[in-house]
Amino acid sequence: MSPPVLELRGVTKSYGGTDVLRGIDLTVDEHEAIALIGASGSGKSTLLRCIDLLDEIDDGDILLDGEPITVPGLDPVPIRRRLGLVFQAFNLFPHMRVIDNVTLGATRAQSVDRAQARASGLALLERFGLGDRADAYPDNLSGGQQQRVAIARALLTHPRAVLLDEVTSALDPELVGEVLDIIRELKADGMTMIIATHEMEFARDFADRVCFLADGRIVEHGPPEQIFSAPAQPETQRFLARLLARR
């Protein structure tokens, strides 16, 4: 049997004396979509940044396709090329046209031929309903369009897994749907992903497994029906009750 795409064992991380992650264990199998839920500051973003090696973990191991990637001294660059990360604030490159944003990783990090990268970039934008925006600059796009471009940018390098960090949290409510639709499409294509989200309904009908994070620990995880309908832990119950009370 092939190893899980991602495996986290006892991952810890602290920033300036504050423990942000306190021993995270998690496996993500091929084609699996995991939703990370939890209050702001529970460690969701940090976890995703650590998996993509943007932040160095303090202890524990992360394995990608069974191969440890958090060994000290290992060059993070080739490993990052095998993962895609999409940010809450899009982080598009404002000085580049949309198409150049999308193809930068393929042409520079993976030395794909420029014309070929452009063709596949245009095809992907077309598929995301952005075919006519390829030559625009990111600042002239709506938030929803920018986030779709950012997802296209993360996909063009054919990652093994995509990590999505609250990708709809910076969007106006009416723009959330267009981004979530794309994520559903990726899921249908069998993309392996971890998505940190505050969209509980989306997490419920989309994810294969839901992980509830609090204070840097996975308090509870399981299929969405179980987490949302019959949470076992009092912390999960409180978190969900607070969310329900708000709407």
Binding site: R49, D52, L54, P76, V77, P78, R80, R81, L83, G84, L85, F87, A89, N91, L92, F93, L104, G105, R108, A109, Q110, R153, A154, T157
Partner: peptide
């Protein structure tokens, strides 16, 4: 710094 983060996440080297 998020710009550098986005560039590194794409697999670019720090120099790139």
């Amino acid at each position: 710094p998020s710009q550098a983060g986005a560039a590194l996440a794409l697999g670019l080297t720090p120099t790139q």
